[in-house]
Design a protein around this nucleic acid. Structure first.
Length: 291
DNA sequence: GTTTGTACCTGTCCGC
DNA sequence: TGCGGACAGGTACAAA
């Protein structure tokens, strides 16, 4: 769900809303989301009364800089974060915000950060795959999980030569390559399908078999599609909502994702679906030819 | 070293 | 209406 455009939307909004606030309490509704440190008391003591200095996106991760620490949140498949105020009623937390309260997708709160203005940041995730980690600010960029990440598509280091060099010898499908976070950051199953449709490349084609022109088209499409996603404030065909509980607008613009059986918006041919290394992929049977 | 498969969880949807 | 099974946007780790 939350891929680059969705996480970018969240981070931009969070900068406006929580920068400068102080963390006053943490409520762990589902304790297992905290992966580091595993000990909740240690986690809480490390960030209590710390001021939020900045919020940053690193691929699909959200980094909240608080004092000398960084809280890393990854929402995985089905998570999203909300900014509101919740009141506990029995075993449930009820948001005082009407939009958040009436949307059933916002029911699955698993973690709450309480700020000095009384408002809270809530992590919501029906599948409980999300993770929260705590790192020190000075070595977050040095840890191996972060060091192995590739370039962000909007970084100046993401050049055609970088991209070409990373993929030219890959013996796996271009679909899997686009999902590989050690090559390009932030692309998930939705936008990879959209990018390949835009570039007119068959998803199962092996990266090393792509022509130079096809690689150029993919490189261009990565930026175009993701930029459009950000402009539309992400997609919400399923669980994802922005931090105010509102839906993104990209759904109307998507060309192939979850459109199998419908007609291609470019050539009217059928959109098909197939499985590639365990991930479902949708593509046009006519304009995305293998050769 | 590279690529593919599986586990992590639970809600939702479809067919019977 | 109710139930069982398939399926779901990501990633770490194991296995091939």
């Amino acid at each position: 769900m939350p891929e680059l455009p969705e996480v970018e939307t969240q981070v931009r909004d969070l900068k406006k809303e929580i920068k400068g606030l102080t963390i006053k309490d943490i409520i762990p509704i589902y304790k297992k989301v905290l992966k580091k440190p595993k000990n909740f008391k240690l986690f809480k003591n490390s960030i209590l009364n710390k001021k939020v200095l900045d919020i940053e996106r690193l691929g699909k991760n959200i980094l909240i800089h608080a004092g000398d620490k960084v809280i890393l949140i990854h929402q995985k498949i089905a998570g999203h974060i909300l900014y509101s105020k919740w009141i506990k009623k029995g075993n449930n937390y009820i948001s005082e915000d009407k939009i958040i309260k009436k949307d059933p997708k916002n029911r699955f709160l698993i973690y709450l950060f309480v700020f000095n203005n009384g408002k809270m940041l809530g992590l919501c995730d029906p599948r409980k795959f999300s993770k929260i980690e705590l790192w020190s600010r000075k070595d977050i960029k040095k840890i191996k999980e972060i060091k192995k990440l590739g370039e962000d598509p909007f970084s100046k280091n993401f050049t055609f030569n970088y991209f070409y060099g990373k993929i030219k010898n890959k013996n796996k499908s271009i679909k899997s390559v686009l999902l590989d976070q050690s090559i390009v950051l932030g692309i998930g199953n939705i936008y990879s399908d959209e990018i390949l449709w835009q570039a007119k490349v068959h998803p199962t084609k092996k990266a090393k078999e792509l022509s130079l022109n096809e690689i150029k088209e993919i490189f261009k499409a990565i930026k175009q599609v993701l930029r459009e996603g950000i402009k539309k404030r992400g997609e919400s065909f399923s669980d994802w909502r922005d931090i105010f509980g509102k839906k993104g607008n990209y759904d109307k613009y998507k060309k192939v994702f979850k459109r199998e059986g419908l007609s291609c918006k470019r050539c009217k041919s059928a959109i098909l679906k197939t499985k590639i290394s365990g991930r479902t992929s949708r593509f046009c049977s006519n304009c995305q030819k293998y050769d």
